[in-house]
């Protein structure tokens, strides 16, 4: 499978030599468009003048002309456009962990909401664990609204994710965490980002559940560790992600921090559960 690290070289070699427009053609297109725009602007100016004159004529009427019918908001040039989903009610921003929950000086960045089906993964997905595929993990894909945001400040960044699910599926997502952390408690694989052909190694990944049901309706505190060791025994890479997952009703929040600070992440998980509770007085 192609590797991101090789992508630039692959594209350089594999993309065909396309027949580029000559530079004068590019410049010509720019010039033509500028002229066309000038013509349109001139035409608009004429229309504005004429409309103004028309107003002078019709303005003497005792009954003004009826305004045009408002166009329904749902009518557009693209009638196949899906209905707009109001993420602000399905998973409001206020239901996410807030900067004040993390510490002074933190602020929200990269705050993005996603409509159903548009976000392809979850906090326990994307792993190369051999057992993962057989688990047939699908509940996370059924979200009604997904949102992620970062909380960044002077300390380590905190990554947050939140999803609203159809009735009952939030509990299935929590059950899927248990299935992944059990089936993928530990696995090895050759390679890893810190390795290369010249510096081969083996990467060991572990999931460890540190606490359960400490907040909300359900909760998990999980440590994910990744360690890559070269053939000579030297450590090439070591990383830890602490993950707090909390569920309140049909909403699930994840709090992730790339620091091995379980107590702090557990506390953040408790606060995330409080935010879920407060979002619609669910608790």
């Amino acid at each position: 499978m192609a590797d991101l690290e090789e992508l630039a070289g692959r594209l350089d070699h594999e993309l065909p030599d396309v027949a580029w427009d000559e530079p004068d053609r590019i410049r010509s297109r720019g010039r033509t468009r500028a002229q066309r725009r000038s013509t349109v602007l001139a035409a608009v100016a004429v229309l504005v003048v004429l409309a103004g004159a028309g107003w002078l004529v019709t303005g003497t009427r005792s009954t003004p002309a009826a305004p045009p019918e408002p166009v329904p908001a749902t009518t557009s040039a693209a009638p196949t456009q899906p209905a707009v989903i109001d993420g602000s009610t399905l998973f409001p921003k206020t239901a996410m962990l807030q900067p004040a929950d993390v510490g002074a000086g933190y602020q929200v960045t990269d705050d993005v909401g996603y409509s159903p089906g548009s976000y392809p993964t979850w906090a326990f997905g994307g792993d190369d664990c051999p057992a993962y595929a057989g688990l047939d993990i699908t509940a996370f894909k059924s979200y009604l609204w997904f949102r992620h945001a970062n909380l960044e400040g002077d300390g380590p960044p905190v990554f947050t994710e939140g999803s609203r699910f159809p009735a009952g599926l939030g509990a299935r997502v929590m059950a899927d965490i248990d299935r992944v952390t059990t089936a993928c408690a530990k696995w090895d694989r050759q390679g890893g980002e810190a390795t290369s052909e010249q510096r081969p190694g083996v990467t060991t990944t572990t999931y460890t559940v540190l606490a359960r049901d400490f907040a909300g309706d359900q909760a998990r505190l999980v440590r994910k560790q990744v360690r890559t060791v070269g053939e000579d025994g030297a450590e090439l890479f070591e990383g830890t992600v602490m993950i707090a997952a909390v569920r309140v009703g049909d909403r699930v929040s994840f709090v992730l921090m790339e620091q091995d600070e379980p107590e702090r992440v557990r506390l953040l998980g408790e606060r995330a559960a409080d935010r879920l509770c407060a979002a619609d007085n669910a608790c």
Partner: peptide, 19 residues
């Protein structure tokens, strides 16, 4: 990277953010 790894079932991309 994590999302890609999931989409591709790839051995080389799922990894903790290296910072």
């Amino acid at each position: 990277r994590v999302a890609l790894a999931q989409l591709l079932g790839d051995d080389n991309m799922a990894e903790v953010n290296r910072g």
